[in-house]
Design a protein around this nucleic acid. Structure first.
Lengths: 212, 212
DNA sequence: TCAGACATGTAAGTCGTTACATGATTCA
DNA sequence: TGAATCATGTAACGACTTACATGTCTGA
């Protein structure tokens, strides 16, 4: 397998988690993992077939499927081993390429106004993102507090192949993990907003406050 | 130019900021921008020549250079215009692909211990990163408070072609901008550590605290 | 019957890193 | 003289997205 092969392991991990088709994987990523991961069809299908070639997964046609025949992929024993070995390997920090900070830096020889404008754009963007995350947070928290299963989780439930009437401990644990990863997105977005609040007055004053 | 062409604009922006060679750009990125950007030689040199082909930059040999002849690139008028237009375009959110959160999610059907281990690894990693950032913070703050120019800034000073005896207002403004982008890295790293502190006890308890 | 959802896939191109090749100068 | 550093560049690969092509079933 290739150098980092993050996509390979992401997909291998998902089919270890639960046998799935390429389409299921895409749904799963869009509904549940979108706060910290993305995959496109152009990666998913070639990768799945590559996993089969490498003996890490098997493919079989789902006999129950209506529509075009679903190809369901399942991790083999050696696939699981490979996945578990990857889990234990040290994890790189996410790649840093923050376009807005680059723009901000590059305006340092222009008018201060330009930097202020960029910071305000950043704040607006992050606040919108935050609002979206907080909506999801409420949905997950409702489910976790046993106060019913919000409609918005239905699609996720279906992808996970759960019946909506009975929530087992394991399912509730999985919803908890969704919630926890979501919290991380919220804390980071809040930190970015806090950064703007800290930095705007300094930039406008042109210097650090005396009280540092 | 290509779809997003972040690298093109990053490099164009740097030579608008100040005429530089490919080698200077690499240094600049490593010393000053590394908290939010990266570029490799494999991108820098082809991109610089592409900018010349497109009429956005000019190349000339630096007559004063010892060693192998330096090729110094300068933005043309149309290069500057292009760069300024890019600055005003809406900025995408950074791409999300956080490998550790993926691992954390994928362990949700394994033993809780595995998730705990990953969170602790994340905390350690972030704390190390934070310590490094805070060292740099002290260095920049010292310079900004006029308490002398720390040795560690020498390389940066040289890349920016400043003599170390006189710090003009403009130079001090640029150091301020370095400092402000650094603060952003610090706030985000702190938020990630806070996330671990929040999440570890919840994961170990297996449920949200009653007091939510 | 036909729009829309489900489902799988490919081609082309963009984006980015790593490893390597090369050459000149400085200084111990 | 020869190691370190400054400096430029390419080839090969790997990572990822977008747009497109295709096919099947369901239900209005």
């Amino acid at each position: 397998m290739a150098r980092k092969a993050r996509t390979h392991y992401a997909i291998l991990g998902l089919i270890c988690w639960k046998p799935m088709s390429g389409y299921d994987i895409k749904k799963m990523v869009e509904v549940g993992l979108r706060y910290f991961w993305s995959e496109s069809y152009g990666q998913i299908f070639p990768t799945l077939n590559r996993l089969v070639d490498d003996g890490l997964a098997t493919k079989k046609v789902d006999p129950e499927s209506g529509g075009r025949r679903r190809q369901v992929y399942t991790a083999t024993r050696s696939g699981r081993k490979r996945f578990e070995a990857w889990l234990r390997q040290p994890t790189d920090l996410p790649r840093l390429r923050d376009e807005l900070k680059l723009k901000f830096f590059l305006t340092s020889r222009s008018e201060t106004d330009e930097g202020v404008r960029l910071l305000e754009e950043y704040r607006t963007q992050q606040l919108e993102h935050l609002a979206m995350l907080k909506e999801s947070e409420v949905i997950f928290a409702t489910a976790l507090q046993g106060a019913g299963m919000p409609e918005e989780l239905d699609q996720l439930m279906k992808t996970l192949d759960w019946s909506d009437s009975d929530m087992t401990d394991e399912q509730s644990h999985e919803i908890l993990v969704f919630y926890l990863t979501l919290r991380s997105g919220i804390l980071v977005a809040e930190a970015r907003v806090a950064w703007v609040e800290e930095v705007l007055p300094i930039l406008q004053a042109g210097k650090l406050p005396e009280t540092l």
